[in-house]
Computed example of a mutant assay.
Amino acid sequence: MVAILSVGSPRHLSLRPRAGGHETVRFPQGHGDLIVMGGSCQRTWEHAILKTAKPVGPRISIQFRPFNVA
Results as ranks from 00 to 15, higher is better:
16 R>W: 05
25 V>C: 03
46 E>K: 06
34 L>D: 07
64 F>V: 14
51 K>Q: 10
48 A>Q: 08
50 L>Y: 00
36 V>P: 08
11 R>K: 06
52 T>W: 02
37 M>G: 00
15 L>T: 00
28 P>W: 09
68 N>I: 12
21 G>N: 11
47 H>N: 04
11 R>S: 06
33 D>R: 01
51 K>G: 07
29 Q>T: 10
43 R>A: 14
56 V>M: 13
42 Q>S: 07
35 I>P: 01
19 A>F: 02
20 G>W: 04
32 G>S: 04
35 I>V: 10
66 P>R: 15
44 T>H: 11
21 G>Y: 09
67 F>V: 15
59 R>Q: 06
32 G>P: 02
18 R>Q: 10
39 G>W: 06
8 G>D: 03
65 R>N: 13
42 Q>L: 15
55 P>K: 09
64 F>A: 11
30 G>E: 11
56 V>T: 14
9 S>P: 13
42 Q>H: 10
18 R>Y: 04
21 G>K: 10
55 P>C: 08
64 F>C: 14
48 A>C: 13
28 P>C: 06
16 R>C: 03
21 G>R: 11
32 G>I: 02
66 P>S: 12
12 H>Y: 12
9 S>K: 09
26 R>D: 09
28 P>R: 13
57 G>M: 10
58 P>Y: 15
56 V>R: 14
8 G>C: 02
15 L>G: 00
59 R>G: 04
17 P>Q: 14
31 H>Q: 03
33 D>G: 01
28 P>A: 08
25 V>H: 06
57 G>N: 10
19 A>P: 00
28 P>K: 10
19 A>I: 05
51 K>R: 12
26 R>N: 05
57 G>L: 07
44 T>R: 11
14 S>K: 04
61 S>D: 10
41 C>D: 11
63 Q>F: 05
47 H>W: 04
16 R>I: 00
43 R>G: 09
23 E>F: 08
59 R>F: 04
67 F>D: 15
60 I>M: 15
60 I>K: 14
42 Q>G: 10
13 L>I: 05
16 R>Q: 07
25 V>E: 09
31 H>L: 04
54 K>G: 03
15 L>Q: 02
56 V>Y: 14
47 H>Q: 05
12 H>C: 08
37 M>C: 03
8 G>L: 01
36 V>M: 10
51 K>I: 06
67 F>Q: 15
32 G>K: 00
16 R>P: 00
60 I>A: 15
66 P>K: 15
13 L>V: 05
45 W>C: 01
43 R>W: 09
51 K>T: 14
13 L>A: 10
46 E>F: 08
17 P>S: 12
12 H>T: 01
55 P>A: 11
21 G>F: 08
43 R>I: 01
